[in-house]
Amino acid sequence: MRERSDETLMMAYADGNMEAFELLYSRYRGPLYRYILRQVSDAATANDLFQGSWEKIIKASGSYKPSAPFKAWMYRIAHNHVVDYFRRIRPVSEIPPDQIEAKNPAPEKQILDEQRSSDLRAAVNQLPAEQKDALLLKLEAGLDLQTIADVTGVNRETAKSRLRYAVSKLKKNLTEQETGSCDD
């Protein structure tokens, strides 16, 4: 069963095969969780959104058509769920990146090792939501431009533009970090 495609597994689950779902879940639980976690930067919220996304996927499994790639279909559901969340709590969700970092203090001995990762996460959190979404779909979900466009409901050029801006800003941030560390 391990060689079966995502679409076949989803259809098998819709027909009542729980093992197919377990396999499908094991394939995507990590990437989907990280895609959500990197957007909200809050484990509790990420857990809620992750569970809510899977509940929607499970409910919609009966109407799933194998003509649509499962991966794009699944990320579209998760994307919409996250977007709905941000629409609901937008006024209080504008948490400054430094506060987010303060919520998750790392052990002292790991601070230096994780400094760069923390800076990167902070840089990602500073991105506009659409650019961050496109970047995470690229880096965490491994989707191509067309699929990112399909998932986020925009055309390919818009998705490409968002990704370009996000990558450019992050690259600039990384360069500044390198410059800063050299100066130190």
């Binding site: 689950y13 639980r29 990590g30 569970q51 990762s117 990167l120 690259k171 990384l174």
Partner: peptide, 29 residues
Amino acid sequence: DLEAVRSAWSGLEQADPPELLNQAVLNTA
């Protein structure tokens, strides 16, 4: 640029959902 970002991104911890969350999702299914 994308490759550089991806490389830096891969240095982030590989967060996974907690086991309880996995069980909750599977129970829902």
